[in-house]
Simulated assay, not measured.
Amino acid sequence: MISALQAQRLSKRYGHAWALRDCTLNIPPGRVAALVGPNGAGKTTLLHLAVGLIAPTAGDVEVFGWSPRRQPTVVLARVGFLAQDRPLYRFTVEEMLALGRRLNPRWDDALARRRLSAVGVPLRRRTDKLSGGQQAQVALALALAKRPELLLLDEPAASLDPLARREFMEGLMEAVAEDGLTVVFSSHVLADLERVCDYLVILSAAHVQLAGDTDEMVARHKRLTGPRCDGESIGRVHSVVQALHTDRQTTLLVRTNGHIYDPSWTVSDVLLEDVVLGYLRAPGVHALPKPQVVSDSEWVP
């Protein structure tokens, strides 16, 4: 099966700083993937590389087996991209629809109009005069009217109030249910991701820390509570993601490698938020093979 989005040792460097480094990733088609990480982790860089807005320093990225740099026309026809700043310019909504018709060969004008009518967006109003929630709905309608197979969303609801965010997420999931889209969704709002995403990618310090099926990742991680210790015995069998100590007690977040037999530990389930925050607090921990670092001598500006 061809991956919806595949990266092999993908790296991007700006001057002496790496925005993304040795990113290896394989997102299956038909998934709604959460892309999570702190500011500066490389999330936006990864999405920009996937649509060909920037060129990689090293490595490669493919969308359904096509390169956004070598076959840009093919990739752009299959990808919808919603940037964080939602660039709608100073056109009316009607003019934005006309622009979409001219630029996209698979444009579905009826779909865009139906979605905008359902959320009450006036077509004759200029986009800069719309509310933030309305702007987000216009941007989503434009992206979906391309009839993409892969939808990339970069913090699309970050500036929205709770009601506008919920309406945006409902519209997104309606589209996923109708069309079987693959979605890669970058967000800091973990509650949104937990409701809609079934695949998890954690980026930290320009590296991929964790990637896989959300339910599987949550099920494999446990919280262990027991008497104060260094956790070395657990670390010989399982992967310790995070360790917290008080004078009398140790609490571990571990990625299990089978059953935990030691009766001195109390084992409890965790939530997606616990897993994400555990890895983000320990950026040196990887659930993937340790990245092979691209040396400076391999970089060609």
Results as ranks from 00 to 15, higher is better:
A139Y: 05
L224A: 14
G40T: 04
L160R: 04
R106M: 10
L150G: 14
N39K: 07
S295G: 14
G212D: 08
S186M: 04
L97A: 06
R113K: 04
A141D: 08
D179F: 15
V285G: 08
V32T: 07
D60Q: 04
V293K: 05
D154G: 02
V93F: 09
G258W: 07
I260F: 02
G42K: 04
G258V: 11
P301D: 15
A112K: 03
D22M: 00
I260W: 01
Q249I: 14
V79H: 02
R113Q: 01
L151A: 03
M217L: 15
W299L: 15
R126V: 04
K146Y: 05
T73E: 15
L88G: 07
V285I: 14
R101V: 00
P87R: 03
I2L: 12
E298T: 05
G132P: 04
L20N: 02
S3V: 14
V241T: 07
R9T: 07
R86P: 10
K222M: 13
R124I: 04
S11Q: 00
E273L: 10
A33C: 11
G132V: 05
Q137K: 08
Y14A: 02
K43F: 03
D109W: 07
P38C: 11
R223F: 12
P283Y: 09
L140G: 13
R90T: 14
P263A: 04
T250G: 12
L210A: 06
A282P: 13
I260H: 00
T214D: 01
R126C: 05
D262E: 12
L20T: 02
Q292D: 11
A219V: 13
Q8N: 15
Y14N: 02
M173W: 08
P68V: 03
Y89G: 08
V208G: 01
C197A: 13
K12N: 06
R228Y: 12
V267I: 08
H245F: 06
P283I: 09
R147E: 15
G30E: 10
L181H: 01
V75N: 01
T251G: 12
A205E: 09
L144F: 06
L150A: 14
W107P: 05
L144P: 05
E174P: 01
I260C: 02
R115M: 05
D154K: 03
E94F: 07
L224N: 12
L130S: 09
P122G: 05
G171N: 14
Q292Y: 04
S117C: 06
N26K: 12
V293I: 10
G235L: 07
V254D: 07
P68L: 03
S239K: 12
G100K: 01
F64Y: 15
W299E: 11
D215Q: 12
A19E: 02
A191E: 11
P122Y: 03
F81Q: 04
L280Y: 01
V240S: 09
R9Q: 11
H16S: 12
Q8F: 12
L103A: 09
G80D: 15
A145W: 09
A139H: 08
G42I: 02
G180R: 12
R195Q: 03
D109G: 14
L20V: 03
Y261L: 15
G65E: 11
A177H: 07
H259E: 14
I54F: 00
V254M: 06
I234K: 10
V276C: 06
L142Q: 06
D192C: 10
R228I: 13
L5G: 15
